[in-house]
């Protein structure tokens, strides 16, 4: 049953991916500007050179033909080449992706591990001092801009701690330039950006867990569970929690594209060599093929994230599988 469900979901997502490529391609070609940055301004090129270069790049072909070249390349796993440095787009992505995954997965795990207990405690002790404190933290987490929080964290843990002679954390990069790269070194670099990124997740997810848990705790089957004579702990963590996690899974699944988009600001503040920073740098350089490739890649992540969420959803709630 579950396998059939997954296959059905995968097949259903194919048109979505196709539509996304069409829209991305269309939008980028609708924006004004030369498709090859700075070509017209280069004094060493004659007009016929420019025409020749554009012809070589296929930019004078009709749009459908260009789209066909691009999409057939995509189907073969070829995202094209960067217009800035001529190297394959896919290689840029695969160079940067591990860093981004490292950062985001750490942040997501931190978020899950902290937000769920916070939400559960908040629900169980609704209205208490501790619940109000968590509420305050959540509002703060959502309201504080992450770049500002990032700068403050750097100021405190990197600059001030260094000045006070305390053990300090690096302010940027994924590893030390000299002699870095061992796991300890990478972890120390990871702490600040991951915390910063996780802070927002914790703020949102803990609220979500709390309200979802409150709703589940008032359900009849929770009363049934109590009537069976189990401990309150078992009622909460076995019978109630699993039900309350179902909607949270969707929310977390939707964070997967945040690999690139949401983390971009943090990647920039902490000079983290990830995909988000790559996307921003290249967008500023008018590297169209790169932006096209990255956007398509993010779209794929959205689809995969949703798919993953749906599968976990079905694993948690048997009613979904047959719907």
């Amino acid at each position: 049953m579950l396998a059939r469900y997954v296959v059905r979901r995968v097949v259903a997502s194919i048109p979505v991916v196709f539509g996304v490529t069409l829209i991305t391609f269309g939008l980028l070609h609708a924006t004004s500007g030369a498709f090859v940055p700075g070509l017209e301004l280069n004094p060493n090129l004659r007009p016929e050179d420019i025409i020749r270069i554009r012809n070589n790049l296929g930019l004078n072909d009709p749009l459908p033909v260009q789209y066909w070249h691009w999409i057939s390349g995509l189907l073969h796993g070829d995202f094209g080449r960067s217009l800035v440095d001529g190297s394959p787009v896919l290689r840029h992505i695969s160079d940067r992706l591990p860093n981004t995954i490292e950062l985001t997965i750490t942040a997501i795990l931190l978020g899950i591990l902290i937000s769920i207990p916070l939400g559960v405690v908040g629900a169980l002790r609704r209205g208490s001092v501790i619940d109000n404190f968590f509420t305050f933290l959540s509002v703060a987490g959502v309201s504080i801009p992450s770049f500002w929080l990032a700068l403050l964290l750097i100021l405190l843990f990197s600059v001030s701690f260094h000045a006070w002679g305390l053990p300090w954390l690096p302010s940027g990069g994924a590893e030390s330039a000299f002699g870095g790269g061992d796991p300890i070194d990478r972890i120390t670099h990871l702490i600040l950006p991951a915390t910063c990124l996780a802070f927002v997740y914790i703020a949102i997810w803990s609220r979500f867990t709390r309200s979802s848990m409150l709703e589940v705790l008032s359900q009849d089957y929770v009363r049934t569970a109590r009537a069976k004579g189990m401990s309150e702990r078992r009622v909460t963590y076995l019978h109630a929690l699993r039900n309350s996690l179902v909607p949270l899974v969707t929310l977390i699944g939707l964070e997967l594209p945040g690999l690139v988009s949401g983390g971009a600001i943090i990647e920039i503040v902490f000079s983290w060599p990830g995909v988000g920073r790559l996307a921003l740098e290249r967008a500023l350089q008018y590297d169209y093929t790169m932006v096209l490739g990255l956007t398509t890649f993010v779209a794929l992540l959205v689809v995969v994230g949703n798919l993953l969420a749906d599968v976990i959803y079905a694993l948690l709630d048997p009613r979904i599988r047959y719907a």
């Binding site: 009849d220 049934t224 009537a227 699993r242 039900n243 948690l316």
Partner: peptide
């Protein structure tokens, strides 16, 4: 032991 009014919601769906 106790059984409840609404059997549709009294059992844990998962």
């Amino acid at each position: 032991a106790m059984i409840f009014q609404d059997p549709m919601t009294s059992m844990n769906p998962v």
